[in-house]
Design a protein around this nucleic acid. Structure first.
Lengths: 196, 196
DNA sequence: TCGCGATGAGAATGATCATTCTCAGTCGGC
DNA sequence: GCCGACTGAGAATGATCATTCTCATCGCGA
């Protein structure tokens, strides 16, 4: 019965597509299972066959989005020409993201604020995302020859831009953050130039 | 009946003290009215006399905390000796805040993530806070002689530090952000020195 | 053609929670 | 000392929602 297996896969994808859209647009708690059913076009019975509870759906949503983000970031970073451009590519990605009409802040921060204090599984998934994302940013900055302290600042600028864009609907946050990073990198190179 | 008025005031304070603690520690949606009643030591009936709905309690919580934060920031900024120290005082405040054991992220970001998409009154209150807070930061940076672009970056660093400290429980976020600001300010002064 | 295992659609269940109501007690004014 | 308005404590209400259940139907192998 290969058909059954294939359809299970496609139903899972169809469900997670809908879940991503609804959870992200409306908030996780505000989205109820009936809404997910309507958006996914699948009966509740089937949804519960695929994921035994809403909590597991939340974790799957966060994980899937994380995997996609990380792959996209790796690709965009890899496509940049110079190590410094790799750092700036992170901000180009942010800028494009903020300008998507559906942008509504960081899915992991949102989930953590909504559920973190009461839902350990969600908190763990958010933790996992934050660690991997921060590790990627740090690696890109270190590979470009800057110090760990600079990497921390770059990370904070990214986090600040995402939060500010999400809460204040400020489309310029990525540009402003990139401006800060440029100054930072230039001054750090000046330091290196002085000491070498 | 001045006694009655006085007691109403003190009951309101007692209630809002408890509400602040419970909403902030457990999350707004996770905290139910019975919990608030227990924490405040007031009957539900009285709570509803003081605030006709949980929504109004949420807005009052955010507003009270906002007023206190702004007053504290103004005081700490005013106490600093030089304009540059006034900028750095913002980060000293962050550092102390992050190290409070009860620290659990930014109350306004938390509220916005939890309720913003579904509760216009909360969204408006968060907006109000963000605008005033950002205006204060911008004013302090401009008064120290830096450019609006620098003020934007300083603001993003503050936002990033708060988010990162909240989600990643990173106690060093304020120190890292201050490091970034120092570089930023120094390089901006160098520019000014070069052009004047 | 027959019967069975799974399916879809939506109703039932049980829990949680904001909000309101009940009722027995209490206090201030007379 | 007495009456009426108010109070506290907690139960009742009504809504919402995750999760489960019912049942009529369907696809498929024999």
């Amino acid at each position: 019965m290969p058909t059954a297996i294939l359809t299970e896969e496609s139903m899972r994808d169809q469900l997670l597509d809908a879940v991503e859209q609804v959870f992200y647009a409306r908030g996780i708690q505000a989205a109820n299972m009936s809404e997910l059913r309507d958006a996914a076009g699948l009966p509740l019975r089937r949804i519960y066959q695929l994921f035994p509870s809403k909590d597991e759906l939340i974790v799957a949503f966060l994980r899937r989005r994380h995997d996609r983000l990380m792959a996209m970031l790796e690709a965009q970073v890899a496509a940049a020409d110079s190590p410094e451009d790799r750092v700036l590519a992170l901000f180009a990605h942010l800028d494009a993201w903020f300008r998507e009409p559906s942008f509504r802040g960081c899915p992991w921060t949102n989930a953590y604020c909504e559920l973190g204090p009461t839902n350990p599984a969600v908190a763990a998934e958010v933790d996992h995302h934050e660690l991997e994302h921060r590790a990627l940013v740090t690696r890109v900055v270190l590979d470009a020859g800057y110090s760990p302290e600079i990497a921390d600042v770059v990370y904070l600028l990214i986090a600040g831009a995402v939060t500010t864009a999400g809460v204040q609907h400020s489309l310029d946050a990525a540009v402003q953050a990139r401006h800060g990073v440029r100054i930072l990198l230039a001054s750090s190179q000046a330091e290196v130039a002085l000491t070498t």
